[in-house]
Structure formats: C-alpha cells, structure tokens
Amino acid sequence: MGDLIDIFFTPWGWVGLGLVLLVLEVLAPGTFMLWLGLAALMTAISTGVFGLGLELQLITFAIYSVVAVLIGRSYFRRKPGREPEVTVNAPAARQIGRDVVVVDALEGGKGRVRMDDTTWSASGADAPVGTRLKVVGIEGATLKVAAK
C-alpha cells in the first residue's frame, strides 16, 4: 500500500489523475470533471515546484478544486448565449410565438384555436372564428393568445 501511495502522490500521479478526469469530462460532459481535472493538474505543478508532502497535496487539491469550480460556475453564469433551455421538460412551451386560428370563438376569454392539425383550448381577448392570433403563453394545456 505504501508503494501505491508513493507512486500516486507525485507530480506524475496528479497529471495522470488530471488527464483521467479530463477524459471523463469528454465522455460524460457536464463541465464538472473539467474543473477537478484542472485542479489535479495545478496540484501536479505545485507538487513538482514546491515538493509538497501527502497532506499538503490533498489540501492543495481540495483548495484548487473549490476555486476551479467557483470560477467555472461564475464564468458560465456570465457567458452570453448559455441560458438554459426552458422548453426541455415543457414541450408545449415551444408553441409560444406561433400563429393560431380561432376555430371556436373566444367568448368570455375562453375558446379553441387551431395550430397545424391540432386544436387547443385557448384563453385571451374575445375573438370571432377565423381570427389569426399569436400564442403568448401556456397555462397547463391552455394556450394564452393575443392579437398579432
């Protein structure tokens, strides 16, 4: 067991761990293993430069891991165009912005509209049959519609 510890807790052991974590990130992307892999590589550099012992290597890896994850989270929060897709678990939300035609007049704020080959319950301002409207929201299985 002592030989295994002596082999792993060297700069090359940390480089190996860092590369394994980076490969795992490629195989199962989620931008978490990336930061741990970078922390392992930074630990390798610190171990090589300062000759850190076992305890200091583990503490250094822990510190680099926390810092790397925090920096990564901060970066992806600010990066434009990386907003989460809000329609992943709400397929009906993809209908927002689409055009519909009233098939059962909207009276009292309720009626039915046709989109493609499907009719949907709709809510919105009163509108006669044949009126073209736009979907502006979804509430349950009811489309919220408004004038184009």
Rank of each mutant, 00 (worst) to 15 (best):
G2H: 13
G2N: 15
L4K: 06
I5P: 03
I5A: 11
I7Y: 14
F8G: 11
T10C: 10
P11N: 03
W12G: 00
W12Q: 09
W14G: 13
W14K: 07
V15Q: 06
G16V: 13
G18H: 10
L19F: 14
L21R: 09
L22Y: 05
L22G: 08
L22K: 10
L22T: 04
V23A: 15
V23L: 15
V23F: 14
L24W: 05
L24I: 11
E25V: 08
A28K: 09
A28R: 14
A28Q: 13
T31L: 15
F32V: 15
L34D: 06
L34Q: 09
W35S: 01
W35C: 04
L36Q: 04
G37D: 08
G37S: 07
L38G: 15
L38P: 04
A39C: 11
A39Q: 06
A39L: 11
A40Q: 00
A40N: 05
A40K: 02
M42R: 04
T43H: 09
S46I: 04
S46G: 11
T47R: 03
G48H: 07
F50D: 02
G53I: 02
L54G: 09
E55C: 02
L56P: 05
L56Q: 15
L56A: 15
Q57R: 06
L58W: 00
I59A: 15
T60E: 09
Y64H: 14
S65N: 01
V67E: 01
V69A: 07
I71Q: 05
I71P: 02
I71V: 15
R73D: 05
Y75I: 13
Y75L: 13
F76T: 14
F76A: 01
F76P: 05
F76I: 13
R78C: 05
G81D: 06
G81A: 10
R82K: 13
E83P: 00
P84T: 14
T87D: 12
V88A: 12
V88L: 15
N89Q: 12
P91Y: 10
A92M: 14
A93N: 10
R94K: 13
R94T: 12
Q95F: 11
I96E: 00
I96V: 08
G97M: 10
R98W: 03
R98Q: 12
D99G: 09
D99Q: 12
V100T: 02
V101K: 02
V101W: 00
V101G: 04
V102R: 05
V102K: 00
V103P: 04
D104R: 08
A105M: 02
A105N: 04
A105D: 03
L106K: 01
E107Y: 04
G108D: 05
G108C: 06
G109H: 04
G111N: 07
R112Q: 14
W120T: 07
W120G: 07
S121E: 12
A122P: 03
A122M: 09
A125R: 13
A125G: 12
A127N: 08
P128L: 01
V129D: 11
G130F: 05
R132S: 11
R132Q: 11
R132P: 00
R132D: 02
V135S: 01
G137E: 01
V145I: 07
V145W: 00
A146Q: 10
K148R: 13
